[in-house]
Design a binder for these strands. Sequence first.
DNA 1: CCTATGTATTGACAAACGTGATTTCAATAG
DNA 2: CTATTGAAATCACGTTTGTCAATACATAGG
Lengths: 117, 117
Amino acid sequence: MAIDLELAPKTKRPAGEPCCEPVVYPDVEREQAERLAMVAKALGDPIRLQLVDVLRKHAGKVCVCELVPLFDLSQPTVSHHLKKLREAGIVGSERRGLWAYYYVIPESLEEFSAWLS
Amino acid sequence: MAIDLELAPKTKRPAGEPCCEPVVYPDVEREQAERLAMVAKALGDPIRLQLVDVLRKHAGKVCVCELVPLFDLSQPTVSHHLKKLREAGIVGSERRGLWAYYYVIPESLEEFSAWLS
DNA sequence: CCTATGTATTGACAAACGTGATTTCAATAG
DNA sequence: CTATTGAAATCACGTTTGTCAATACATAGG
């Protein structure tokens, strides 16, 4: 709004030492960071992390009715966590009759694992 | 409140097929899951993930004054994210005169990296 | 002392989160 | 058909989160 500009006091550094070495910014990271953070966020709850842990250890598909009693939580709450994991692409689900089976999608963790190493 | 109890209908499974194979619950995981989830939660924000990414790539200590302009965020917000990372044990900080330098603590990511592989 | 500068903390607020109670849906058994 | 069962969706709630504006804190230079 103010049109009159100022002769800014020229950022007078307190001492001769420069603040620090320049840092290059990997702008390509933007999208990748959002994907990685989405996965990390989904794993950022102890219940969900244990769900993924159990599912991974079983390598096969596991019924929700077996997952619920593992936790001191209501069935809707476990279902809610599974939904979060599904939305993050970490697990998939399949219905067989009355039951729903969940499984880990290993590729979903690969990018994150690679970044971390 | 109701004292009169019922002869519960004895969980009549719809078919012969059992719900699923039994799942063993690794209760030892409880504490580990909380540690892992704490790290994952800290990484579960794009800004923080990029902060860690930049710090890791530099392997040295980086001044806050270099980190702030990398993001379209106010300085207090960046400071807040750095604090979160510090509380999760992922980064450490050091003051030199007016400036604060941050660095990644590599060991903090090891357990998570191992679990992920 | 006083002033300027880099960083951290506080206060406020909307948005998202974790949870349980309740309800809805889908599918099977009778 | 009706009744029952497993799972998901909805509603409500208190808590946490991400953000900025304003402030406080520390240090360096005059």
